[in-house]
Amino acid sequence: MKKVIVFLITIVLTGCLSNVEQGELYLSEQVGIDGERDIDVITDQEVLNEVWEKVEFQKSVPTINDGEAFIIAYTMENSCAKSIDHTTITEVEIFHIETKKRGTNCNDIGIERTFVFEIDKETFTKLESIEWEEEPFTIH
């Protein structure tokens, strides 16, 4: 029985780690700073604290572990909320983030939406750029 439990825990932990390797969605909130599509790549806790306060996230600021990064992606949505459709890391080391909107009968009212992704150290050091809603952003 103990072997089965250890095996299941190993599978669960492996699944969690692979999510961070691919850019785990940490947070999505209807907040923003300037109403424009943009990306912040943060590897320093002090900078993350400052951005977290400026954006006014409801959730507490996370802790950056050594070498990890948080990618903060800003966008605008209409009355139909956006969500993350999928994220992938391509062979040429581009972190590709694709959104989708929920609903079809939407009013164009311009609401800020910010997504926060957590990336592990090994994956982050390999990345060259981010493609956010079909727009490229260089990160190094």
Rank of each mutant, 00 (worst) to 15 (best):
K2W: 04
K3G: 03
F7L: 13
I9C: 13
I9A: 15
T10S: 10
T10K: 06
I11C: 08
I11L: 13
V12L: 12
L13M: 14
T14K: 00
C16W: 02
L17E: 09
S18H: 11
S18F: 14
S18G: 00
Q22Y: 12
E24Q: 12
Y26N: 07
Y26P: 00
Y26R: 12
S28K: 06
S28M: 06
E29S: 07
Q30K: 14
Q30P: 06
V31N: 05
I33Q: 08
G35N: 06
E36H: 08
D38L: 07
D38C: 03
I39C: 11
D40K: 11
T43Y: 09
D44H: 06
V47D: 01
V51R: 15
V51K: 15
E53P: 06
K54A: 03
V55R: 01
Q58N: 04
Q58W: 07
S60I: 02
V61H: 01
V61Y: 00
P62L: 02
T63P: 00
N65K: 14
N65L: 07
D66M: 12
D66K: 12
G67Y: 06
G67V: 03
G67R: 10
I71K: 02
I72L: 11
A73W: 11
Y74G: 00
Y74F: 12
T75D: 15
M76E: 10
E77S: 04
E77A: 07
A81S: 08
K82L: 15
S83C: 05
I84Q: 05
D85F: 12
T87W: 10
I89T: 07
V92I: 10
F95M: 07
H96M: 08
H96T: 02
I97A: 09
E98W: 04
K100D: 09
K100N: 11
K101N: 08
R102V: 13
R102P: 00
G103D: 12
N107R: 14
D108G: 00
I109K: 08
I109S: 08
I111V: 15
E112P: 09
E112T: 10
R113G: 01
T114E: 07
F115G: 08
F115K: 06
V116I: 06
E118T: 08
K121T: 04
F124S: 02
F124Q: 04
K126H: 09
K126S: 03
L127V: 05
L127Q: 06
S129W: 07
E131M: 15
W132F: 14
E134M: 00
E134V: 00
E135S: 09
E135L: 10
E135Q: 10
I139D: 13
I139Q: 13
H140Y: 15
